[in-house]
Amino acid sequence: MKPMTKENAIDIDKSVDINNEMTNPQVSSLQIPAEEVKIKAEDVRVRYGEKEALFGINLDIPQSKVTSFIGPSGCGKSTFLRCLNRMNDTIDGCSVTGNIHMDGVDILSKQVDTVLLRAKIGMVFQKPNPFPKSIYDNVAYGPRLHGLGNSKSDMDEIVETSLEKVGLLKEVKDRLLEPGTGLSGGQQQRLCIARAIAVDPEILLMDEPCSALDPIATAKIEELIDELRGSYTIVIVTHSMQQAARVSQQTAFFHLGNLVEYGETEQIFTSPQDERTKGYITGRFG
């Protein structure tokens, strides 16, 4: 298991006012009604060994909407995303403190079974990572782990609906038994999304899902995110501000391990409150 390095934090332009990293003067213009909050993060701190990666994040993620995390490389947005399904557990020397409540349950608690948690929170990665198995087995992998689709016909149905939802079914209908690694990059990424939604999660985490794809494949994924929005709470990390603006309703800007600003996407991109946000979205750094 390779430890993740978070040393590539970019030096911010000196003209931009930097507040003390340890305090977190967060600008949040967002008022989400309590019953619509799907995930509530309070003072989430992450360290990789000696190195602190997140300095106390407070963030409410609303249900059935798309929330995007933006920020320069190494700002902690992916780290925070990986806290939401406890993927940081798999990294040696990584410790997470604070509270993250999902539907009122603290998912960082030791009592929470990550197997069950991850069945509720699907994840899509930066690089398409289909298993070296058939397309069918790729989609059926999750349901099999969780004992869904006990009969052959149930499983067929799960696989077909999942592929249908990501718009892949008519492209691969005739070759479900061929390896998933033989698909194009964009198809592979949609296969990974199908694989994630096959276990019927409530939340979908996407870690730069389009960064390895060409513009046409990216457009398809973005379309898909828009379609999936109603049924899932989606959190997407992206490097592309245009993408954040296109697909998300809320945007959070991370910088150097802090959540700098969080608000309606439109507000963040048109009238950012914080100097650093303004600097980033106008391309002055990052």
Partner: peptide, 25 residues
């Protein structure tokens, strides 16, 4: 590592990941 992450993210345990993803690969 991406294959391991993929399996863990779907709720696979360590032994499930080893027997169903890593060993076949």
């Amino acid at each position: 590592q991406a294959l391991r992450d993929g399996s863990y993210a779907l709720g696979g345990t360590k032994s499930e990941t080893v027997t169903q993803v890593i060993l076949p690969a």
